[in-house]
Nucleic acid binder design. Structure first.
Lengths: 291, 291
DNA sequence: TATTTATCATAGCCAATGGCTATGGCTCCC
DNA sequence: GGGAGCCATAGCCATTGGCTATGATAAATA
């Protein structure tokens, strides 16, 4: 009644079914006739039906046996298939990988390597996940995301961090300020994403010097902030790579003496989780694109 | 590298994958944590890939692990399916059965039970095989045919023989003989199937008494013989049930003093091969139809 | 900082078992 | 009646899947 046979017993069975003779099947399988005999009894128990009719001239399959012969072959076949599939995944560059990064980082990083990567490895499937760098890093640590392209990642024992490039977060203004705009912190408008630690740090520095802005427009989208800044609404807090990405916006740094936050854009991933050929290919591709 | 894992290991794996924790999975499986730990290492060997990333907080599936989780579930499912399928075949009245019988026997026997049987058991599939009774009996013995409805079967140790009814093989002639027909053996025409042992016996008897027919029309088809006899070509050798099956033919026994061969129409099958519910149902159905 | 807690891995032991040899029982065929 | 072929049974042994106890390590806690 044991409901769990071994794969071996099924392969044994198939050989017996084909030769219709336990003794000869045993020879071909390289085991002895009594072993095979008991193995078949074992299998009959676990399947719950008589599989053979034992006769003087060998064995004949019952209907149950015929059923098992056909489907058992399929079963073994799908096991072999599964096994090779898995091993292929290990060595071939294929499968689905999730890359996480802040949307604004995405805008100046993904296009550097994704086109090439996707073209050179048609089996590769990439999924993107956009969020704050902090969140992305957490998701990498918790296996939810394979790779992160993140800013100033926290360190973590399991995390591999590769610095890709640097950036500065600073205050920007339109080249031609509108007449109504005041660059004076006391009266001017600041446009920024308060969720960014970089912004929090800069504003903290400013406040220490009593230079805090009174009015703040909050936006979670750096592209929106860039656009508003270019339109002359106020002073924007932006990474250089974001502020200067679109030339037609003509932004310029507000004041050299104002504080600047140094960003490190890094590739992060779990070393233990990314050992496949596909992972290595992706890592190399990203690193290369920033050299 | 052993390429043959046990089903148990896969069920273990699935539990571990679901709980993402070897210790808790071990509890649920009713084995100890070290056992499960080594079982998983075993499985990793046999599949040839790392399945988990072991961490302090439990285990996480690798991509290979995720693959195995999905397909492994299917694998176990198809095993269970196979198992229940086989057991259903044992107890339910379904599956394919082959019935063999001489075509002429078929004409007055099959219609007695087949319509009912097929209607009452929609899962039942019947295949017919027509040949000489002798051949059919051999095929039953060699497992090629499940049941035989045969005439005067030879005995065989493995064979179960159930007598269904009797019949006589004798000489027939048309009610109104044609002017040209001679009933005299010396000049008349005999129509028969020389392959039938019954016919051979009758002719042997006749020859002993010097009453042998000179001219013989041989046909392997008793319906043809019946038809020709009715048309007045000559004397036919036919079983009573065949000769009288179609009333409009108006055949009559030629002469009471001529020899008669007693036939036994029997159901034969291998007891060892026909233990399923379906077999029993078929046997009962056939026996009942002849009571 | 030291301790407790939670995790998986390792080591060593034991019983269950899959395999082997030898033998028995049963036909069929000389 | 004496092989010759089958499969089944019995008894033995090495392998192994499972158990207990312990180690190692990192995180949470005091």
């Amino acid at each position: 009644m044991a409901m769990a046979p071994a794969f071996t017993d099924i392969t044994y069975f198939i050989e017996v079914a084909q030769t219709q003779n336990i003794s000869r099947a045993a020879e071909r399988l390289g085991i002895t006739q009594p072993s095979l005999s008991s193995a078949m009894k074992r299998l009959e128990d676990s399947v719950g039906a008589t599989l053979f009719i034992r006769g003087r001239t060998g064995v004949q399959l019952t209907k149950a046996g015929k059923e098992l012969l056909g489907k058992g072959r399929l079963l073994l076949l799908s096991w072999e298939q599964l096994r090779t599939d898995i091993n292929k995944k290990e060595t071939a560059v294929s499968g689905q990988y999730i890359i996480g990064c802040h949307p604004s980082v995405a805008l100046y990083s993904l296009s550097r390597f994704l086109p090439n990567l996707m073209q050179q490895h048609p089996e590769l499937e990439i999924k993107l996940s956009h969020d704050l760098s902090r969140k992305i890093t957490e998701e990498v640590i918790s296996f939810e995301v394979d790779f992160g392209i993140v800013v100033n990642p926290v360190h973590h024992p399991d995390l591999v961090v590769k610095e890709l490039c640097t950036d500065d977060v600073l205050f920007w203004t339109a080249n031609r300020p509108s007449p109504t705009q005041s660059l004076d912190p006391q009266n001017g408008v600041l446009i920024c994403d308060l969720n960014l630690v970089q912004v929090q740090k800069l504003l903290g520095d400013l406040n220490k010097k009593n230079q805090g802005f009174k009015r703040i427009i909050q936006s979670g989208n750096l592209e929106v902030i860039t656009d508003l800044t270019a339109s002359g609404v106020g002073v924007g807090v932006l990474p250089r790579r974001v502020a200067t990405r679109i030339n037609s916006y003509k932004l310029r740094p507000l004041d050299n003496r104002l504080p600047v936050f140094k960003d490190k854009i890094c590739l992060v991933y779990r070393a233990d989780a990314q050992k496949t050929k596909g992972s290595q290919t992706i890592i190399e591709s990203i690193k290369k694109s920033f050299q």
